[in-house]
Structure formats: C-alpha cells, structure tokens
C-alpha cells in the first residue's frame, strides 16, 4: 500500500519539476532571493499563459504580482514576457540570464517609477502648487500635467535605461541582488533620490501670461523641500515663454553628486563644439554614464 501511494507522489513531483522547467518566464522562481528581499514575504504572484497564435507563433506569459508597499498600500504590477527560446530578440542578449534580467528590471523600474511619482506628487508638488490638477488616474510618470498657467514635465530614471552597452546589463544585475539592489516594498522617494544610480528631471513651463513671480516662489519652495531629501542627481528647471525675449530658461538647478553650474558647462560645451545646442539633461546623463563605465 505504502509503495503505491509513493509512486503517484514521485510522478507528481516529476511533473512539477518538468512544469517548473518549462515555465521559463517564472521571474519569482528565477530570482527568489531578490523577490523576497524586494517585495517582502507577503508578495503573491500568478501566471496566465497565452496560447501560441497560429500565424505569428507568438506566445507570451502574463506575470502578475501583488505586494504591499511601506505605507501599507496594496500594489499590483504585471509583465508580459515572451519565453527566451521563442523571442525574436534572444540573439541580442549575451545569455538567457541577461534576457531575464532585463525583463525583471523592466518590472522593477515600473514600480520604482510609480512609487516615486506618488510620493513626489504628495510631498513636493501638492503642498507647493495648490492649483495643480491631475487626470483621473493621476500622473504615474509625472508626465505633462498641471493647471492653468503651467505644465510640469518630469520623471525618474535609472542611468543605464535605454542605453545599449555592457553597462545596462551590469547595472541590471547589480540592481537585482538583495545586497546591492533596490528594495521596492520599503521604498520611499526620499531614499530613492539618494541612490546615485538614478537621476531625476523636472521642468516647469509657465505660459506667457502666467504670474512668473508667484510661480518662481512656488518653484523655490518645492525645490527647497526636495533638497531636504538629499537628492544626488537632478535637474530642476523653470521656464517661461515670452514674446519679447528669446530667454526661456530663467532658473535651472543641477546636481551631479555636487552642485553643477549649468552655464559654465554650457560655455565649455560651446567652446568645444562651436554651437549652442546644449542640453543640461543630456549632458548630465552622458556624464553619469561615463562615470559609471569607469567604475
């Protein structure tokens, strides 16, 4: 009797193992330590495997994740993942491992973006921009939004995002380790901005008829509060369009670990390149990339 009951158990275990092996896209199984570290013990996940379409041959898995953030808010994330073996892009990765690191990083980056935007809006923007309005769903990536008189454009980025070099893969691995990576479930925007692997950009553009003095006051107050977080890399800019003047940017503050004088960098750039299509944001990102490559 005992032997009979053992056989199905062994078969079952074998089937589980086989199933486990075939589910290549199981990010939680692939990065178990990081998942426990980043999303806490209480995270839950599920899969939905789509059918392979007859013509395209495309098949992907929908990975859904639920976890609780530091404020007690329930958050959900999802990723649509094509198994490595079926991906048309697999040749562009050094290994299968690299491929799934990128999938995982995309999932984590999305959550970092959302957590940061929520905190930034609540703690920095709302107290200082009382006329600020948002779309019904909020502004998850701090996209252009605002009210009569101004728009705000901004977002947070991992320095290597969308960069096509070894750094992207190297940093993804660093970010997805329990000892060096980002912990999403305890993430607070004020901690995130201290991480020198990220940079933030914010531009507030005033309309022509807006009261520049009032908005500058709001801008300075928001910036002062933001600086209390101890951010490492950011650009804060305030601009207004006028008919009379071609000077739009009247306040730009830039940090790259330490305060940077955008005008001085612009002058250096112009001296070297003999033209004025200088962008502080591009300059900052390039500088950060170069600095990371040397590490």
């Amino acid at each position: 009797m005992k032997r009979r009951s053992i056989i199905p158990a062994i078969l079952c275990a074998g089937a589980l193992l086989l199933t486990g092996c075939s589910r290549d896209t199981d990010l939680a199984g692939r990065f178990p330590d990081y998942f426990r570290y980043s999303f806490g013990d209480g995270y839950r996940y599920s899969y939905e495997e789509t059918e392979k379409t007859a013509v395209s041959g495309i098949q992907y898995d929908i990975f859904r994740l639920d976890y609780t953030d530091i404020t007690g808010k329930q958050r959900s994330a999802h990723a649509d993942i094509t198994p490595y073996a079926k991906s048309d892009f697999k040749d562009e990765y050094a290994s299968k491992e690299d491929y799934y690191y990128e999938e995982m990083q995309l999932l984590v980056d999305g959550e970092v973006d959302n957590v940061f935007a929520d905190g930034f809006i609540e703690q920095i923007l709302k107290p200082h921009f009382p006329t600020l309005t948002f779309t019904e769903k909020g502004s998850p990536q701090l996209g252009p939004d605002g009210a009569d008189g101004f728009i705000i454009a901004g977002c947070i980025n991992l320095v290597s995002v969308a960069s096509d070099d070894e750094l992207s893969s190297k940093l993804a691995k660093e970010m997805l380790q329990p000892d060096t990576g980002i912990q999403v479930c305890t993430l607070r925007p004020e901690d995130l901005v201290k991480d020198d692997r990220y940079y933030e950009t914010f531009v507030i553009s005033l309309t022509e008829d807006a009261d520049a003095a009032m908005y500058q006051e709001w801008f300075e107050a928001a910036l002062a509060d933001y600086r209390k977080w101890g951010p490492q890399n950011y650009v804060f800019a305030l601009k207004q369009r006028t008919e009379e003047s071609s000077e739009f940017l009247f306040r730009e503050v830039c940090m790259l670990g330490e305060t940077v004088d955008p005008e001085a960098r612009k002058a250096l750039w112009q001296e070297k390149n003999q033209n004025d299509d200088y962008s502080t944001m591009i300059d900052m990102r390039q500088t950060m990339l170069e600095s990371r490559r040397k590490q």
């Binding site: 252009p144 901004g154 977002c155 950009t201 553009s205 299509d277 962008s279 502080t280 944001m281």
Partner: peptide, 14 residues
C-alpha cells in the same frame, strides 16, 4: 524649439 526639446526630454526620460 530648444525649450520644447528640453520639455520632451524631461517627459520621456531617456
């Protein structure tokens, strides 16, 4: 145009 470009970068990240 330069100012518009800056806004675009700020919105789109990279």
């Amino acid at each position: 145009l330069q100012a518009l470009c800056q806004d675009y970068i700020a919105c789109a990240g990279s």
